[in-house]
Design a protein around this nucleic acid. Structure first.
Lengths: 361, 361
DNA sequence: TACAAATAAGAAAACGTTTTCTATACATAA
DNA sequence: TTATGTATAGAAAACGTTTTCTTATTTGTA
């Protein structure tokens, strides 16, 4: 008799105060732990009598199921990893916000990592995320980790690439029409009569940078403008890089009269360099940026820029991931979102029709 | 015989391909799972012979321990929750970056949440983080969740408050000298000869907003300037709010000739309103912002602003948390970091070069 | 009346680790 | 020699869930 009781109690898990578990709820409500679990997850038959008793007990104890145990047993986690290359870039924070909005509603948590554009760091993060048993990962892929990504997919972790298209056929992806955006921006400058147009690019390897340069070149061709290689400067997508790149351009024997800058942070740097030399925008030099940012309308003159739907990139990526988690067999797809040229005054447009606040709450 | 073998194999966990576990490593290297675990954690005696065999097996299988199982067993997690009120605010992204830098090195992962300044959302996130069994939480506390926070601390989850001081004595905190920062900024304007100075504040409830207003008032008093209640506008720390607030100020019968804006996003909005009316900065209106941002030097004129050590706020918070995790009994402490007035041209300082930042670290 | 099907709930197994307990071999000290 | 300690490594328990397996009860149908 005593023997038997002892054995039964073996699992009673007398715990320290504060932390409580399913056994305590079961005890308080006088049911088995199975029933408690069923009530908590709420999708199986439990009598209304027991349901209410369990719910009451759970409430008074402030019980909430341990997620590690749950994940372990279910072999799935309600966590999704996000690896961003630069969290200090407002473009990416908008993306994150988009991701968060969707995933939060779907009951997922976000495990966040900053790769700093470093493939090694990216790999470390990827393996941590795997150990963490995330359901999926949304990332801005750097190069060099293709085989590793592939092995992740094989081991059942779904990936979604954003911003860059790594040319992988084993994951979904969301990008924007970089080439078209750059084409429009450059054409805009050409149409305003600027002939000597320069560009500040990002790193040579990233697909976004390459595509934007392509659009730039095509626009020059389209408008019968000569392409001077000296007016193409490669940089690093960072503010300081943009600053130095613009200095280089301005130091040329024949500097450009208009410039397209391939991302937001470099645009800030470029503006700084221009202001330092007391050049008038757009009279002495016109400028068009890529990425429309909150500060674009606060600049004097306001900044003409190619707007990317950053928030939508995030929501789209999250949705792709959710759909794939629901149906892992469906074919991989690449969603390409549109860009929009926001014409303001830094490009020298006389008709500043489109001055609107970027961000209304 | 067969019986016995079956029983032994019971634990062999023949798995699907791809995912691998400790049993497979043990099998491949011909040792027990205990030994594998000991090798992986690497702080207990295992012979060099077995160690190398296990390591090799782990490598070829690409094994890495399941974190859920580990957390469950160890009853601690290497995950830390971060709840930020607005991820689109560059100030907070710098903070996050600081947090990430420290915690990454210490082997922690970051579970990220956006509270959107909404106490209800904050509470939801807090309980998710508890279920997730995080070791600690760094948050920008909104009001109204005091008792809940307290219960978290009681159940063993350490909290660190950043940016705002909720006046709680059961958690560590990191803030900056808001009052002193606002005092200096306002004094700077007063010393330049501006007499009619306005302020755009954040929400009335947040401690940062209150402290900055206090510093503003004290500076006026100190310089024998009258305080016109009409020149104090409360807003919401967002760009649109700053835009509208500045419009309100400029629409006054006697508008201010200089303005201090209590955060970065509202400053952007205020600038927009000023530019829309084609007012010259600083000749027709001077402006000083709170929070020094990457774009401050790209503005024309460049923006005078109170710099907060956002990155350091993050690293400090992370360090406080790590120290507390190491020694949960140590007394709670509030770290207050210094601000620094970055004098540029939007405040009109060109006219008065005698002024220099009054500061010591 | 009897037998199948459906409902409800407990017992027990399983998830993949870490760690305690136990056992062996070998060295050292009494 | 015997006792004691130490290095090494396997067996088994434990972490807190979810879910399968059982069992008991109720309902429906031939």
């Amino acid at each position: 008799m005593i023997e038997k009781k002892k054995k039964q109690q073996k699992q009673e898990h007398e715990q320290a105060e504060g932390k409580n578990n399913i056994f305590q709820v079961a005890k308080l409500s006088g049911v088995s732990i199975a029933t408690v679990s069923r009530v908590m997850s709420g999708k199986v038959y439990v009598s209304s009598e027991l349901t209410s008793r369990v719910k009451k007990a759970a409430l008074t104890l402030g019980y909430c199921p341990n997620r590690s145990a749950s994940n372990l047993r279910k072999r799935v986690s309600k966590t999704i990893g996000v690896i961003i290359s630069d969290i200090e870039n407002p473009f990416f924070t908008s993306v994150i916000r988009g991701i968060e909005t969707i995933l939060y509603d779907a009951g997922y948590s976000l495990l966040f990592c900053n790769s700093d554009e470093d493939p090694k760091r990216e790999k470390t993060h990827l393996s941590i995320l795997r150990a963490e048993d995330v359901a999926g990962i949304i990332l801005t892929p750097t190069k060099n980790n293709n085989e590793f990504c592939k092995s992740l997919v094989e081991s059942g972790i779904q990936l979604v690439a954003i911003d860059r298209s790594p040319g992988m056929d084993y994951m979904d992806g969301v990008t924007v029409k970089n080439k078209k955006g750059a084409f429009e921006a450059t054409s805009h400058l050409a149409q305003l009569g600027y002939q000597r147009i320069g560009i500040i690019c990002g790193p040579k390897q990233t697909s976004t940078s390459v595509e934007r340069l392509e659009g730039f070149k095509e626009a020059l061709l389209h408008h019968n403008l000569v392409l001077d290689q000296k007016l193409i400067i490669y940089s690093d997508f960072r503010q300081m890089g943009g600053y130095k790149a613009m200095q280089t351009l301005l130091d040329l024997e024949f500097p450009p009269i208009a410039v397209m800058v391939s991302n937001n942070l470099m645009t800030l740097g470029a503006l700084q360099a221009i202001h330092e030399r007391n050049l008038k925008i757009p009279d002495q030099i016109a400028i068009v940026g890529f990425d429309d940012m909150p500060w674009a309308t606060s600049l004097q003159p306001s900044l003409t820029a190619v707007a990317q739907p950053a928030f939508d990139i995030g929501t789209t990526a999250a949705q792709l991931l959710l759909e794939r988690l629901k149906d892992p067999t469906r074919s991989y797809r690449q969603v390409v979102l549109d860009t929009k040229l926001m014409v303001r005054t830094s490009s020298g447009s006389k008709m500043n029709l489109l001055i609107k606040p970027v961000n209304e709450t």
